[in-house]
């Protein structure tokens, strides 16, 4: 059973410079209760995917087509007021940067308590207990005092625990964690990853790990969706992806960052394409070591090659002796 099914989703940003096709016709689904890795380089559309599912794409962005089925219900036709009941309650998002995603002028108790009150219609005192309970779940030390403190009084790792608690307040069924460790020290990263793994298992949530770090994916995820320049390049179970990867995934895998340079972005020769005027055919062709004439001319389609493995590449079969 799939908890989420994204079909032909298109999210564009209508900027002064032109239309940025951040998500250009992407489709994928997430099996219920699994951990799925959403990977791709910077600018590939990972964050916009999470924002689109929650329908919080910032201006000048707009979802211009497709559908998003959550537990069988299409979210896109929903009214704003109805959609709000999904946000934070059934679907949550942990942001890329814990520091900038906490409001500096309100206490932790106030910010998190408001969310509980919004969805549960509890009294303030009951909401407070609820918040403390959830902060404990995220292993924040001394939650009774923490609720009276402001974000700047915590370290980066503690702030991320607070953000995790914020996302978990209402036990969502689907949790997007948007590069939850990129802005943290290496030692803290491992703790946060361990915490997310435990929580996913204990709460039975479906977890989407957004990352460009294939090491984290290998460690946590059963399924992987690989994005490049607003297109799905590959979908599949983790072992298939490591065994017979799409050429872009292969390049990503070669670039698994070493522990001593985890802050470095994944490095693949060449630049991420301009999404206003993207390359013709396969968007990866200017950087692909296997590119041929056909790659420039024809857009490859996402093909089912069995075992839940899908690739979008003209030459994959040939390269993997499946022609």
């Amino acid at each position: 059973m799939n908890i989420l099914e994204v079909e032909k989703l298109k999210t564009y940003f209508f900027t002064e410079a032109g239309v940025v096709k951040a998500l250009d016709d992407i489709s994928f689904s997430i099996p219920k209760g699994s951990t799925l890795g959403l990977v791709g380089e910077s600018g590939s559309g990972k964050t916009v995917t999470a924002q689109s599912v929650l329908r919080i794409v910032p201006k000048p962005g707009k979802i211009v087509g497709g559908s998003i089925f959550f537990e069988g219900e299409d979210l896109l036709p929903k009214k704003e007021g109805e959609m709000r009941k999904f946000r934070g309650k059934k679907i949550s998002l942990i942001f890329q940067d814990p520091t900038s995603s906490l409001n500096p002028l309100f206490t932790i108790g106030e910010q998190l308590g408001d969310i509980v009150v919004q969805h549960m219609k509890l009294k303030k005192s009951e909401a407070k207990e609820w918040v403390i309970k959830t902060l404990k779940l995220a292993k924040l030390p001394d939650p009774e005092n923490a609720i009276h403190s402001y974000p700047h009084q915590f370290s980066g790792g503690m702030k991320q625990r607070i953000c995790i608690a914020r996302a978990l307040l209402l036990s969502p069924k689907l949790l997007f964690a948007d590069e939850p460790t990129t802005n943290l020290d290496v030692t803290i990263q491992a703790q946060i990853i361990a915490l997310l793994k435990d929580l996913q298992r204990d709460l039975g949530m479906t977890l989407v790990m957004i990352t460009h770090d294939m090491g984290i994916v290998a460690d946590m995820c059963k399924w992987v969706v690989v994005l490049y320049a607003g297109n799905v390049m590959e979908i599949g179970p983790i072992d298939k992806i490591f065994e017979e990867p799409h050429p872009y995934t292969e390049a990503l895998l070669k670039a698994i960052p070493r522990l001593d340079q985890t802050k470095e972005l994944v490095f693949i020769p060449g630049n991420i394409p301009n999404l206003i005027d993207p390359p013709s055919g396969c968007k990866f062709h200017p950087r692909c070591q296997y590119a041929k004439e056909i790659c420039k001319e024809k857009i490859p389609s996402l093909e089912d090659i069995g075992d839940g493995h899908f690739v979008s590449c003209h030459r994959w079969k040939e390269l993997n002796n499946r022609g």
Partner: peptide, 9 residues
Amino acid sequence: MAARASGIS
């Protein structure tokens, strides 16, 4: 955006 993602009005 985080407040919006949490369902705050």
